[in-house]
Simulated scan of single mutants.
Amino acid sequence: MNAENYLKLVQFYQDYAAAVDQEDWDAWLNMFTDDAKYKVQSRENYDRDLPMAVLNMYSKNMLKDRVYGMTETIFHEPYHQCHVVASPRVISASGGEIEAQANYSVFRTKTDGIAEVYNVGRYIDRIQVTDQGFKLASRLCVFDNEMVLNSMIYPI
């Protein structure tokens, strides 16, 4: 992967974080292929090859359904997220597909103003290079802690 494409990949990761943090769900959805897989799983289950996951969606339509649920039907105490995403590490890049990983930290701030570390882990991604730019074909969020504080409403 050349330097120009690597910079585009870094920008893609930062755009993803901004879309989620700013609750720009249209932009977030547009970052996925139609048959994308999105999974949030504990490291313990990932390492032991166990299927249990906090979220497990396997199409863009399921992601759209999640957005509808988050914005229209799920009642929860309001909070904001702030993602800090490390520079991605390219595992492989060939034939219009990139395999990459990046560490992330998500901070959550509730309306009472107290910020807390909410979720820490790594993204394990398969990214398609399309005419419209990079698209996530698969995003696996493997989080380090064994449990999630309260419930997970927004994507990681």
Rank of each mutant, 00 (worst) to 15 (best):
F32N: 11
K60E: 11
G95R: 03
D125G: 02
Y68F: 09
Y46T: 04
N5A: 11
V120Q: 12
V142K: 08
Q132N: 11
I124K: 13
L63R: 07
T71I: 01
A53C: 05
Q132V: 03
M62E: 15
D15K: 15
N5V: 04
N150V: 04
Y79V: 05
Y6G: 06
Y154C: 02
T73M: 09
Q128I: 09
D65H: 11
E97D: 04
F143N: 11
I156P: 01
A137N: 04
F75S: 12
V120H: 09
M31E: 01
I153L: 11
Q128M: 12
D144P: 00
N103D: 12
I91R: 00
A36C: 15
N150F: 09
V40F: 04
Y58V: 05
D131M: 00
G96T: 06
L140N: 03
Y68H: 05
K64F: 00
V120M: 08
M152P: 06
A17V: 02
L136D: 07
M31H: 06
L63S: 12
D49V: 08
A17D: 09
S151V: 08
Q81R: 04
Q14S: 14
R126C: 02
M147L: 14
C82N: 13
F143K: 10
N103G: 11
S92E: 12
N145K: 10
T130Y: 05
Y79H: 10
A93K: 00
Y118Q: 08
M57C: 01
D21K: 07
R66S: 05
L140G: 00
V129M: 12
K60A: 14
L55E: 08
T33M: 07
L55Q: 14
N5L: 10
L9T: 07
N30K: 10
Q128V: 11
A100P: 00
K39G: 00
W25F: 14
I98T: 03
I98C: 03
I124N: 06
K37E: 04
Q41R: 15
M1C: 00
D26M: 13
F32L: 08
S87G: 13
D144G: 12
I91K: 02
C82W: 02
L136C: 07
R66C: 02
C82A: 09
R122G: 07
I153F: 05
V106M: 12
N119G: 01
R66I: 01
G69D: 01
K39S: 03
A17H: 05
M52T: 14
F32S: 07
A19L: 05
D112Y: 08
N30P: 11
H80P: 01
R139V: 06
P51F: 13
N30A: 08
L149W: 10
D125R: 07
V120I: 14
A102G: 09
Q101S: 09
E23T: 11
G121W: 06
I91W: 00
P88W: 05
K39P: 00
T71K: 08
L136W: 07
E23K: 14
C141Q: 10
T71Q: 02
Q101T: 14
L50N: 11
Y123D: 14
V85G: 03
V20L: 10
M70E: 04
Q81M: 07
G95N: 13
D144E: 15
D112M: 06
Q22T: 13
N61V: 02
D24N: 14
D125C: 08
C141N: 15
Q132M: 09
D47C: 02
F12Q: 12
L50H: 10
I98L: 04
I98G: 03
N2R: 08
D34S: 13
R108H: 10
